[in-house]
């Protein structure tokens, strides 16, 4: 069909799967879960119950035969479920402000 604006395209509301659909949700956090890797048995209960999900077992990590649990702080909202459910009680919820101080210290 001849038309001047032939680059015209119908647009629709197609959202593509991507991480961070709501941005870096780590910014929502007031408490940060910190894992005591010494105590951690790699049972992965924290991975199972993370609603984000932003905790995974890095099986490639050589520090332990089962690998290492890592938390993606870019997206972790700090809900604390992981700490609450951890059978070893090896996740501590630490105020974000503590880390701010550290980072400020580093800046200086």
């Amino acid at each position: 069909m001849p038309d001047a604006k032939d680059d015209f395209k119908v647009e629709t509301w197609n959202s593509k799967p991507a991480k961070g659909s709501a941005g870096k949700t780590g910014l929502w956090r007031t408490f940060r879960p910190v894992i005591n890797h010494e105590k951690c048995t790699r049972c992965e209960i924290c991975v199972l119950f993370c609603p984000e999900p932003c905790i995974e077992l890095d099986q490639e990590d050589k520090s332990h035969k089962k690998g290492k649990i890592i938390i993606d702080y870019d997206y972790c909202k700090g809900c604390g479920i992981c700490a609450n459910e951890c059978p070893q009680h090896c996740i501590d919820m630490i105020k974000e402000t503590e880390f701010l101080k550290d980072e400020e210290k580093e800046d200086k």
Binding site: A18, G20, E52, D74
Partner: peptide
């Protein structure tokens, strides 16, 4: 489910 969604912290529906 891809991290960084807009659910409240601790949301069980995303879980």
């Amino acid at each position: 489910i891809l991290a960084g969604h807009a659910a409240c912290a601790g949301c069980s529906s995303s879980l």
